[in-house]
Nucleic acid binder design. Structure first.
Length: 688
RNA sequence: GGCGAGGUAGCUCAGCUGGUUAGAGCGCAGGAUUCAUAAUCCUGAGGUCGCGAGUUCAAGCCUCGCCCUCGCUACCA
């Protein structure tokens, strides 16, 4: 592709399961909006697509818990997020939703095409089924005892206590979270995408794409990492009653995997926006397709979705995927479940008419290549020093002076002055801005524009019109006219970053559409006689009192989370006993060779949280055992400890160290582990 | 353990395919100025570029080893 004829820009579809926070904005929506606004400014044909992602098990699970319907949840958050995006000035051409019939049709058709092409592998497997509810259970709907750490309440896909990833059939005493009953295993069929078959293609494709237009380092790195680990079959359907129904006769009760259906949402949204011409954006090689998203979505958009589009055959593939990393709160990860975040709707309520301040701070701090931090102190400083001090102040000075000395009318009588610095700055501005925006480096881009306001301040300081007015009115006029010209350019080139501020700037100078065209072509001059309006302040100074409630709110959220963790731990300690395991014979018991031993040495294993490497004296020999007790016992405190060890357990390598046995431990149910010990027994003696 | 991204001034970060005295903003110190929301402008101090080897006439940038942070993945009584 040489110069694209048109652009299609997508930003990740927010999951309709909660409100938006500034992490979403900084990493996805603000960069996408800047990019799109810039393209529109330079006259490109661009469409900007977004919408709510409304399917998936998380929504049904939550609906069940709260005793409401999935529909109620998605309606609530769709409306909420759509409205707050609008309030924040997001310039989507459409904010669609995946519950729309058009989307169901589009994604079902898409699936049919793939299926007819024989892309999928059909596989039967045994999965848990809730007989009471008559439905198969997604991994998250099943809880049970973790086979590895024995903690209760592990999910079918993961134990949150020990972090193991699980298969639902691994769980001891599985239980359906829907009915509370024990699920049964039942055969079910699913359609899998054999990703391994496309591995070579996708690898070549990524290398080819990123040689044409530079992809971000971490994006390519993440992709290569996945490719070298090898790609497995991935199921594209689920047993669920919420989502896009699989359009096949033998697929009763099955829906498309939400990760398949969501990106097709980009296509549906484009259709909804442009019923007649949408194909120009999806099927014409002259269209440049770009996905903006957070790093958590990289793999899907760079590997799986392109694969699917490629397998389908009719669609263009993304030119670039400029994913951002995460915005943290002073080092803490933002968390919806912990309510630890700065929420967009709360910001908009708490800081009315200060949308641009948030946009600016998030841009300047954008996590373009690495995680970055947000803090309210920084927010305040950026507002006061950069928006108020440099930009707002410059504009205000010029406007105040032109009113004070010339009644707000650009004077005819003027003189020649040296404006080289300003002229150079204004000539370079569009070039520099273009350079950084095309590289998706928006922090640099906004700096380049803000620097022009700095040039203006310096110009005023150097020429001192407030002194000159006493001796040379014509030169003063020339200086202020030059200042106005800077404001005119700012009113255009700041638009992608500060869309609420730039209309005010245009209004101050009474700029017309023709003026704006002239500014873009670099031919604009501030003509004599132009009426300039009185200044009003663009930005408000913020003091500590303005941000104190916000800081307090975050601290309160952190504390509430800590408290709930403690309460949970206490509740867990409030006792449920594991059921007894099946009876065994004496012979089974006799197979266990348990010996007494003394710990001779112990050291924490590097790069592990829980592992200790322990050297034991068994009397007749010494052994090394790796034990996962580092969070309960300090290595230096257990030397000399008498312990019992299961001595005939098959050796196993953990982190490269062979563990020759297992030390017996007993817990108190509150996360403490104690050694089981035979105080005075001799090392090497057995237990009977 | 595997993979990925990082480790550059007190803080937040730039540094293109290796090339002269390593940059910016904030903070700090000093000065100028008063048109402006006590805003602005100028000057200065401050870095053995994570550590150690190597390649090179020349390394923040390349190679190897190690350490630390973050993420994915595995392992984890």
């Amino acid at each position: 592709m040489n110069k694209p004829k048109r652009y299609l820009v997508t930003s990740a579809l927010p999951y309709s399961n909660g409100p938006l926070h500034i992490g979403h904005l900084a990493g996805v929506y603000v960069p996408a909006d800047i990019y799109v606004r810039y393209l529109r400014m330079i006259g490109e044909d661009v469409r900007f697509i977004c919408g709510s992602d409304e399917h998936g098990a998380a929504i049904t699970l939550r609906a069940k818990k709260e005793g409401i319907t999935p529909r109620e949840i998605i309606d609530k958050y769709h409306e909420m997020n759509k409205r707050n995006f609008e309030r924040f000035g997001m310039s989507f051409d459409i904010y669609h939703r995946t519950s729309d019939p058009l989307h169901h049709q589009t994604s079902a058709d898409f699936f049919t095409v793939l299926n007819n092409k024989g892309v999928f592998t059909e596989k039967e497997s045994e999965q848990y089924y809730d007989e009471e509810y008559q439905q198969f259970l997604a991994d998250r709907y099943i809880t049970g005892t973790c086979p590895k750490c024995s903690s209760e309440g592990a999910y079918g896909d993961q134990c949150e206590n020990c972090g193991s990833s699980l298969d639902p059939t691994d769980l001891i005493n599985p239980m359906s979270t829907l009915s509370g009953s024990t699920p049964v295993l039942k055969k079910t069929k699913h359609w899998y995408l054999p990703m391994g078959d496309y591995q070579e293609w996708v690898g070549n494709w990524i290398e080819a794409q990123q040689s044409k237009e530079v992809w971000k380092k971490h994006v390519v790195g993440q992709c290569r990492s996945w490719l070298t680990q090898g790609l497995n079959d991935r199921s594209m359907t689920r047993d669920l009653d919420w989502g896009v129904a699989v359009p096949l006769p033998d697929a009763e009760g099955k829906v498309l995997y939400v990760w398949l259906d969501a990106p097709i949402g980009y296509i549906s949204a484009t259709k909804a926006l442009l019923p007649d011409t949408w194909e120009q954006y999806w099927k014409d090689e002259d269209c440049k397709l770009l996905h903006f998203l957070g790093k958590d979505n990289i793999v899907f958009h760079c590997i799986i979705f392109p694969m699917i589009l490629h397998a389908h055959g009719d669609f263009v593939l993304p030119t670039n995927v400029p994913a951002c990393q995460f915005l943290n709160l002073k080092g803490y990860k933002m968390s919806t479940s912990r309510n630890l975040a700065v929420w967009l709707h709360e910001y908009l309520d708490d800081f009315p008419e200060q949308e641009d301040v948030l946009r600016y701070v998030l841009t300047v701090n954008m996590p373009e290549g690495r995680d970055t931090d947000f803090s309210w102190e920084d927010f305040k400083d950026r507002n006061n020093k950069e928006l108020v001090g440099i930009l707002g102040n410059f504009v205000n000075r010029v406007l105040v002076l032109i009113h004070k000395y010339f009644d707000g009318i650009v004077p005819a009588e003027t003189a020649d002055i040296d404006t080289t610095l300003i002229d150079d700055a204004l000539t370079n501005l569009p070039k520099e801005l273009d350079k950084w925006v095309q590289r998706y480096e928006f922090r640099k881009a906004v700096d380049v524009v803000m620097d022009v306001a700095g040039v203006g301040n310096k110009f005023l300081a150097d020429t001192e019109p407030w002194k000159l007015i006493k001796t040379d009115k014509a030169q003063t006029a020339a200086i202020l006219t030059a200042g106005l010209k800077i404001i005119a350019y700012l009113s255009v080139y700041l638009e992608p970053f500060l869309p609420f501020t730039t209309p005010k700037l245009k209004a101050f100078l009474n700029l017309t559409e023709e003026d704006i065209t002239a500014i873009k072509s670099g031919t604009f001059e501030v003509a004599a006689g132009r009426k300039i309006n009185k200044a009003s302040l663009l930005f408000k100074k913020l003091d500590d009192k303005a941000i104190a409630p916000q800081i307090a709110k975050l601290e309160a959220a952190q504390k509430a989370y800590d408290d709930s963790q403690k309460a949970e731990a206490a509740a867990a300690a409030g006792k449920t006993y594991e059921p007894l395991k099946p009876e065994i014979s004496y012979e089974d018991f006799a197979k266990l060779d348990i010996r007494t031993a003394t710990i001779l040495a112990a050291e924490k294993m590097k790069k592990t949280d829980k592992l200790l490497k322990i050297t034991l004296d068994l009397g007749f020999e010494q052994r090394t055992v790796v034990s996962g007790i580092a969070q309960h016992h300090q290595a230096e405190n257990i030397i000399g400890q008498k312990v019992l060890i299961l001595a005939n357990l098959a050796p196993r390598k953990l982190r490269g160290v062979e563990s020759q046995g297992m030390i017996l431990m007993a817990g108190d149910g509150k996360n403490n582990l104690f050694f089981v010990s035979a105080h005075d027994a001799e090392n090497g003696e057995g237990v009977s």
